[in-house]
């Protein structure tokens, strides 16, 4: 493929990656920002979202869109409730001590993963997208005969992948409004700034933590429901999103939601675009090192305040 179309295709793919990443990382970022804890089980909540989506769609027959919409409603809810319960039963008991939270959530990771393996099984299971048309994309070039349009071989995207980008933007905008304009958001921000003062002003900090933890997991699940028609539900699928989401949150700057979005776009797009210039594995190595270097030279992250 020529350079131009190749770059366009890689950018589109990068945008899809960035959209999903923004959703999963946003969940982690909120938890991180408000509660200051590392949730290692975040990837497993993502995986659960995908598995529940498969389960819902395979129970409901008819047009795939019906099952998909149901899954989009049910999966985040179930996952969010589970996470809130885990918070109440475990994290609250250990007082959100940083080290202990890491071990406890690693334990949670194993519990969720293994339970899924025993019930759902080891196979990767597909979910049918609600719609999926291949859209061939044109390319313009200035040649001898002037400006010409043509259809390069392979240059295409599917309608569903475009939908994922749009959906992610819509969900993130809603979330933004929720946090900045609603009372729930105000309470969240107050707890984030100073949990003790918030407590003094009658904010039920424990309960806020519980629902924030649930909300974070729910967002991961939303990302998973969106991604599962492209990829498949598999009990080990939470691993890479966890790492990527982590990296995104830190690069964006701890506790900065806009930073998380910018970092997600940066990481997702660079993953796509760098792949144009280097062989696949080398591109991954370079992309990883580049992102690491961002932190080395800007330890507080892109939009984080310096310590």
């Amino acid at each position: 493929m020529d350079f131009g179309p190749h770059l366009l295709l890689a950018s589109l793919e990068g945008a899809v990656t960035a959209a999903i990443l923004a959703l999963t990382a946003m969940g982690l970022s909120i938890v991180f920002g408000v509660m200051r804890v590392v949730n290692v089980a975040h990837g497993e909540f993502y995986m659960l979202g995908a598995v529940i989506a498969w389960w819902v769609t395979s129970l409901i027959g008819g047009h795939p869109a019906i099952g998909f919409v149901m899954a989009l409603g049910i999966a985040p809810l179930v996952v969010g409730l589970l996470a809130a319960a885990a918070d109440k039963l475990i994290l609250q008991k250990i007082n959100y001590d940083p080290d202990r939270t890491i071990v406890a959530t690693i334990g949670l990771l194993y519990i969720i993963q293994q339970t899924t393996l025993m019930t759902f099984g080891p196979d990767a299971r597909p979910v049918q997208p609600p719609f999926n048309t291949r859209l061939a994309l044109p390319w313009f070039e200035y040649g001898e005969g002037g400006f010409a349009m043509f259809w390069p071989w392979g240059l295409s995207i599917t309608s569903y992948k475009l939908f994922v980008i749009v959906a992610a933007v819509a969900i993130l905008t809603t979330l933004w409004l929720l946090i900045t304009r609603s009372k729930i958001g105000l309470i969240m921000r107050a707890t984030q700034l100073d949990s003790e003062t918030a407590l003094a002003f009658g904010v039920p900090v424990d309960r806020v933590y519980m629902w924030v933890f649930g909300l974070g997991a729910g967002l991961a699940a939303v990302g998973a429901v969106l991604v599962v028609p492209i990829q498949q539900a598999h009990y080990l699928m939470g691993h890479d999103p966890l790492l990527l989401a982590f990296i995104t949150v830190i690069i964006g700057g701890l506790g900065s939601l806009p930073g998380t979005i910018i970092a997600a776009i940066l990481i997702g797009m660079s993953d796509g675009i760098i792949s144009v210039f280097f062989s696949p594995t080398l591109a991954k190595i370079i992309a990883t090192l580049l992102v690491a270097m961002v932190l080395v030279f800007r330890p507080q992250g892109l939009l984080g305040r310096s310590a």
Binding site: I90, R100, V103, G107, Q114
Partner: peptide
Amino acid sequence: SAYMLIAGVVLVLLTLFAP
């Protein structure tokens, strides 16, 4: 065969009772 499940539970219990 679900030994990682047991490992997970033990990890959680340890953080609760032997921090």
